[in-house]
Every structure is written in structure tokens, then in C-alpha cells.
Write a protein that binds this DNA or RNA. Structure first.
Lengths: 196, 196, 196, 196
DNA sequence: TATGAATGAGGATTCATTCAT
DNA sequence: CATGAATGAATCCTCATTCAT
């Protein structure tokens, strides 16, 4: 009965960060279906039990990972929008470029699909999902202001982008990402002008 | 103890149909997560083993269910489009109304989300998904023809609709379905006119 | 990031006492199954690790808690028996009233059931259990002395009481506690007289 | 991905019986704490998953095992009582001899202790426990009839026996089983006569 | 003393899938 | 065709325990 339980082997510097980053990497490499608590622990050199110690459940882990991923992106987005004195068209293009998945199997969007699926039966996940989307909405509203119907604008543009993102991340046949960015930007600009 | 195994208990008229419809109902009522082969069998009075016999795998079952659901919808769509001599705007409105989920937790769209998720790691599912979407694409192209860039139009409208559908089916906060239909239709009409 | 680990946060006056009392309360409120070292620590404002530091193991904690509970009861029992110049019948009634659980889910008896279960595979627990019961035995022997077969008397009465206690603490159907006390007292008195 | 799932390897004659008997044996040999679903399955040559298939949960398994054990004992008890035209005293002795555990770590009583413990937090287990005890109660009432207060008699005798049984099964210090049977029988007879 | 991060064993549970009957 | 018993993989999560600080 020589249990090693409790023996500390390694102390991570920024455990949360490290685990979250590892989760993103693992998802990108092998997909979400392959992601296990134990496997994730092994990736960063801690026990599976400890991953569960940081994140109450796997559901929590997924939401947290998405949230963290979006926070990092949020910083880049705000930098882009704040610093820019470029015309709105260009800033919209930058926004859209950040919004859409980088590639097929992009981790962040893999998580979005998962969160959508899970939010079907779980109000908490749904709420988390709305909250995570929040900053995007705020920044887009600021970007197009003044605009008579910002809610409608955001709904239309975000819905379009979500649909495009789904196609990119799943690898559905169609134009490449650059073309999609172009089309979405045209739409975004046209809409922004058209009703101003 | 005489085993009843092997005894034909019941002979369904249209086994496939019955099972598929039952799957749709079960998903609408309890969600996809609750759908088990055995439970589905019980719903229609056959064994779980026999459900697996009809559909090679659960993945197959899901794809088949979605395909079947879309086929039935396809008939309604074609009826709508063929019979109609209404202006394009009205026909687009009808198309959109059919496309979007009827309600939160709509079975068909629950399946779409699942299929998207599964297509991430499975090329076959991805192919099936494209194939199932096909008729929608055909009919939309026909509806707007002649139009200089039908592929772009379809991509934009379908992406927008997919994004809106996701919000409806998950129950995300936002305007109600009717408003979404209105906005999508405006967009569809504007696009169709704008570049004609 | 300066760690607060190692910083003394709070110094309990009588740490053992406080923890033991908290354990009793927690068991009464949520049951033994819900009792965790960490949860118990939180209840009294110390760390779960420190609870383990006071009590070598959870097994120890349970036995200690029972022992402590019985010690406190022992004081009341001795007060009752020493001070009393009431007839034996009344003193037996008092003894029995103290012995039996106060109510369904009574902490002390919840612990007795647990200790019985654990003593099945652990001689140490069995020994502790016998030791904790000791004072009851002593006091009962004194109470009925002189009596020709005190061991038999104690065995019979304690067994009867243990059986009744089990019914009370589990909430098994049957007469209420008062009626049980009455019946046990009659038995105790009758036995004490019958063979004197 | 060559899964052997679904490949039937062996078909037990009386699966339930076999598993229940194996559970009794395993408990007697290694204690309840060592009993795992998988281990139990291995013992009888079926998979752990299949043990769970027969018994919804481990809790169920325990209750079922106790019930089955008691049913078998019930047959012996009824045989004893029905066939006997011996005096009540002898028949009470037989009843008591059947009631009490055969030995330290007796499986049936190990299960009783566990069921008592679990019934503390689970009304269903409590109900099952009362139901399983039922036949003993019936037979005892029949055995002593007519008797002015059968409920009281049963409560007193069963409580006494439960207390004695606890001591036998845990291996608590005290007289040996035979002596306990003697004392309990004396008590049972005296009570039965005393108030008739 | 006191903390609390980290360990890691441990087992139940669920179900798609298979196949003898 | 149809049954349903049997498989077994797959993994989450809990929590007592340890120990560097």
C-alpha cells in the first residue's frame, strides 16, 4: 500500500495558463474528442487528478479554455481597434480576420462548436457562451458607431461570420479563407454604409 | 426456460421511417445526448440490437436521420418554389422560413450542430453534410438565377442563415425567430437586387 | 506572486475540540458520506491538510470523534448515576435514555454504524470500539450490582439497545423512541429483578 | 480499432444466481470493501460491464444479494417451522439459530451492516431493508401466536438478535455464538411465557 | 504550526456493437 | 428478420494523504 499520493513532483509556474495552452494545442493536434483529463495532465507533467482539481469538470475546462483563448484574442482585437486610425473598412477587415478561424480544425472554433452543442442542454454553458461573445459585440458596436441599428448589424455580421467560420473549421468545400474574409468585409462595409 | 430470442415480435411497416421519425421526436423531447440505440428501439417496439442492424452505426443513424429530415423538408421546399409565381422576395422569405429551425432545440438543427462537430474528425461525415446541403444550394441558385455570382450569394446567405439558426436552436439571447426571418429576408432580397 | 502558503491564518483555541464538534455537526446535517477532510477544515476555518495533520487518517478521525462524543456523554451518565439516589428502575431508565440515539441520523450512532462496518476488516477499529464501549459496561455493572451474572446482563441489555438504536438511527418503521425507551426499561428492570 | 465488444464468450446457465452466489462468497472471503463489479464479473467469467447490466448499480447489487440470501434462508426457516411439531421453545431456538450470523464476517450479516449504513441516506435502501426483514417478522408472529403484543415481542427479540448479531459478525469480544443462542433463546422463551 | 497544491489510486457506469439463437 | 445477452473500452471524478514552503 505504498501510495505516492500527495508527493509533489513538480510545481508549475502558471499552472492554469500552462494547462489552458496545452488544451488548445492538444485540440488543434488531435481534436477535442481525444482530449482527456489524464492526457492533458500528462502533456504538462501533472496528474490527471490535478487537472480536475483546477477545473471542476471537463465541461468547465472546455468553457474556461474557450474563455481564455478569447481573452487573449480580445487583447489583440482591442490593440488593433484602438491603435488604428485607419478607415472603418480596414478596421472591419481586421476585426473579421481576427474573428474567423485561422484554419481547418482551429482549436478556438472547435471549442465554439462544442460549446454550441453543449449549450443545447445546459443553460450554464449557454450563459457562458453569451458572456464570452460579449466583448466582440461591444467592440463591433464601438467600431460602427454611430449606426441606427447596432443590434441588427451585430446580429447580421456575427451570424454571417459564425456561418463562415463553421465552414472553415470543418473544412467544408468552398472558397478559401481569404476569399471569405473578402466577402465578409464587403458585406460588413456595405451594411455599415448602406443604412448610415 | 424457453428463450424468446429469435421470435419475431413485431413487424414494422416501414421500419426505417418509423425509427427515423422516432429519433427526431426523441431528440426534440430529450436532446441528442439522451438518445441511445436501446432507448430508440424501445420507443418503436423493436430491440436496440435491431436498430443497430438497420443502421450500421450510431454515426450512420444520425446522418441518416438528418438526411431523412432534410428530404422531407426538401419536398415542402420544392412545392413552395415550384408552385409559386410570387415575386422573388416572397419566395426567398419562404425559403428562409423553411431553412431556419422552428424552435429552440429543433431536432433537425440539433443534428446539424452534431454533424458539424463530428465532421471535424471524420471526412465521411463532412462529405455527407455537404451532400445533404446540396439540394438547398440547387434550389437557391435556381431561385435567384440569373445572378452573376451565385456561389458567392449562396455562401453568404447560407452562412448568415447557419449563424442565425445556431442562435435560434441554442436559445441564445437575441431577437425572436420572426425578426430573424425578416432580417435575413431583407438581406437576401437586397443582395439579390443589389448586384443583379 | 507571493505565496501565502505557510502563513498562519488562524489559531484555534482548542483545535481538536473544535474539529470534533464540527465533525459531529456535519454528520448530523449532511451525513457521514458527505464528510470530507477538506470540507471539515473549511467548516472550522483551517485547511484540509491540517485536519489530516491533527488526525493521522480519516479512520482515526472517525474513531476519535466517536470517542470524544462518548466521553462527553460519559460525563452526563456518571453525573446521572452518581448523583441519583433514585430507585434502580429510574436510574436504568436514565441510562437507557442516554444510550439510545436522540433521533434519526443521530451523529453518534451514525458513527457507531460506521465503526461496526469498518471493524469488520480492521482489528484496530474493533479494539477501539470495544474500548469506547467500556465505560458503559462498567457503569451498568455498577448499577445492577450485586447481580449473579453481570456479563450476561450487560450483553443482553446492550444488544437489545444496539438493535433498538439501529432502528431509531436508520429511521426504520416501528414505535417511536419514547416507546422503545419504555420497552427497554421494562426489560432491563424485569431482568434485573427476575434473577436477583 | 478491433473491438471485441459484443462478442459473446460464454453464456451462463442461471446468471443471476451465479453472480449472487459469487458475491456472497467473495464477501465472505475478502470482505465487502474488496468487492468490485469487475472483480465479481471475473469470478464468474463474465465482464464487469455485464454485472452492471444485470444489476443497475452496485447499491442494487448489494440489496439484491441480501434479498437473495434471505430468501434462501427463508425457505429453510419455513421448512423448520412448518414441519416441526416440537415445542415452541425448540422452534424458537431453531429460529434464533437461523437468524444469527454463522460466524465472524458472515456474508449475510456483512451485508446487513452495509445496508443499515446506506439506509441512513437512502430511503429506498431503507424500504428494501424493511421489506427483506418482513418474512422473519411474519414467521415469528405466527410462531408465538396467540400473544397479546406480538409487535412488541418481535421488536424486542429482533432488536436483541440484531445486537447479538453485530457482535458476532464484527468479532467483538464476548461469549461464543452457542452461548448467545442459548441466552437469546432463554429470553425468547421467557418473554413468550411471561406475558401469555 | 499551518498551508494548499499535487498526487494517484480507484471503480462505477454507460453504451455502441456483435452474434448465437 | 429479429432478439437481447454479453462485451469491454473508455474516462471522469473524488478525496485521503503528503510535503515543500
Amino acid at each position: 500500500m505504498l501510495s505516492m499520493a500527495g508527493t509533489r513532483r513538480k510545481r508549475l509556474e502558471q499552472p492554469r495558463e500552462v494547462v489552458l495552452q496545452a488544451a488548445m494545442d492538444a485540440i488543434a493536434e488531435h481534436g477535442l474528442a481525444q482530449l482527456t483529463m489524464a492526457g492533458l495532465g500528462k502533456r504538462v507533467g501533472i496528474s490527471g487528478g490535478h487537472v480536475a482539481y483546477y477545473f471542476r469538470s471537463k465541461e468547465q475546462l472546455l468553457v474556461e479554455t474557450l474563455r481564455w483563448s478569447e481573452q487573449r484574442l480580445g487583447e489583440r482585437r482591442r490593440a488593433l481597434l484602438d491603435a488604428s486610425d485607419a478607415p472603418v473598412a480596414e478596421r472591419l477587415a481586421g476585426y473579421i480576420d481576427l474573428y474567423l478561424p485561422d484554419r481547418r480544425a482551429d482549436s478556438r472554433w472547435t471549442l465554439w462548436l462544442e460549446v454550441w452543442t453543449r449549450s443545447l442542454g445546459d443553460p450554464e454553458v449557454l450563459a457562458a457562451s453569451a458572456e464570452i461573445e460579449g466583448p466582440w459585440v461591444e467592440d463591433l458596436r464601438a467600431l460602427i458607431a454611430p449606426y441606427p441599428d447596432p443590434d441588427g448589424y451585430v446580429l447580421r455580421l456575427h451570424s454571417l461570420l459564425d456561418g463562415l467560420a463553421t465552414r472553415i473549421v470543418t473544412g467544408a468545400p468552398g472558397p478559401d479563407r481569404a476569399e471569405m474574409v473578402r466577402q465578409a468585409t464587403e458585406f460588413a462595409v456595405r451594411e455599415a454604409r448602406g443604412e448610415r
